[in-house]
Design a protein around this nucleic acid. Structure first.
Lengths: 115, 115
DNA sequence: TTAATATATAACCATATGGTTATCAATCGT
DNA sequence: ACGATTGATAACCATATGGTTATATATTAA
């Protein structure tokens, strides 16, 4: 492993920020497929698909096995779990903060009504 | 609400793909702060900070209250939860697929040893 | 062996992103 | 009233991103 944890998160979140790539991952929920199957739902050139796939691969979200002339793509859940865990970790604190601010704002609201 | 769920996820994941912005969100775990406090850990110009903040805001990850000349920034946990839930939903399936592929590969490995 | 298929790469283009410096606007403290 | 402080905006630059078409490579099928 060359790149650090933060850089890995950059790649994973970056990969997830595109709807085509999220669509591909959704397709992969059903199991490993070849690339032309992955490409089917999108009206976009084959090279474009190829590059989206590379982004997913570089983020560690999928892996590829060449099987003859076809490439079988499968999902690597670990990279996604890392991203999920980053969010989940902070969500605990954020939710507290969020609720505190909500409460504060509600109080302000009430004050305004009284004034 | 104008933009759809997918576009919202684009923005949220995109916002999370930058280490400066993730750093800001980490700071916000401790509670609402003004912008210069958020900026402090980063050696980067004030306009750069201002724009990172706008990205977080447009993704719905933070909200802003002007309090005199200072802007108080607080986290909005809901946007992040949506992203976490998207990952979590698919992670269930991905993990299954991942484990299935692992098992398959291990079997192949054994076969190769026997041959 | 030759044509078709599956996929990658190269070259290009337009737009987005992330940074800078310079400047503006609003508010606060004296 | 005025200078300092907080923050946004404008203009600019370099690089990244997401798409295209054309072409190359490897494998399979006829």
């Amino acid at each position: 492993m060359v790149i650090n944890r933060a850089a890995q998160l950059d790649l994973v979140f970056g990969a997830l920020s595109d709807p085509t790539r999220r669509g591909m991952l959704e397709t992969l929920s059903g199991g490993a497929v070849n690339i032309r199957t992955l490409a089917a739902p999108f009206k976009m050139s084959q090279p474009a698909i190829s590059r989206h796939l590379r982004v997913l691969e570089e983020a560690g979200l999928v892996r590829r096995q060449k099987r003859g002339r076809e490439h079988h793509i499968s999902v690597n859940s670990q990279a996604a779990e890392q991203a999920r865990d980053w969010i989940a970790h902070y969500t605990r604190f954020w939710k507290q903060q969020f609720d505190a601010v909500e409460e504060y704002l509600n109080k302000q609201e009430q004050k305004n009504h009284v004034e």
